[in-house]
């Protein structure tokens, strides 16, 4: 009894610890794509995530506010270019999120 109730508590705690910023589907999609590359521009992320410009922009702002991504505005030739990259904090947060989710799903009996 003690073992199962402590396991239940652990499961509840692991799901409670889930990063709600990352957990939103669109932001999770963005974080996943940025995690597997070094950096990408806005257009690339739009194409890969199928998000609209406004949607992507809004989620990017939220991620930037918590320090998970950095937005680098630069010029390529004469054209303005926006590159996006996960910060170290963002990578750690994403890995933590992965770990917590895996822990939670692994705990579910088949």
């Amino acid at each position: 009894m003690n073992k199962s109730s402590s396991k239940k508590t652990e499961d509840v705690q692991s799901i409670s610890n889930i990063d709600k910023i990352i957990h939103e589907p669109a932001r999770l999609n963005i974080m996943a794509h940025l995690y597997v590359v070094d950096s990408a521009d806005f257009l690339f992320l739009m194409r890969q995530t199928d998000l609209t410009f406004g949607n992507l922009s809004s989620h990017m702002s939220k991620l930037e506010d918590v320090g998970y991504i950095e937005i680098i505005k630069e010029f390529v030739g004469k054209k303005p270019h926006t590159m996006l990259r996960l910060t170290k904090k963002g990578r750690i947060a994403f890995e933590e999120y992965k770990k917590n989710m895996k822990q939670f799903f692994d705990g579910i009996p088949k």
Binding site: V36, V37, D38, S39, A40, D41, L43, F44, L45, R47
Partner: peptide, 8 residues
Amino acid sequence: RLGLVKFG
């Protein structure tokens, strides 16, 4: 058309 990316 596709955007710019730097891979790992």
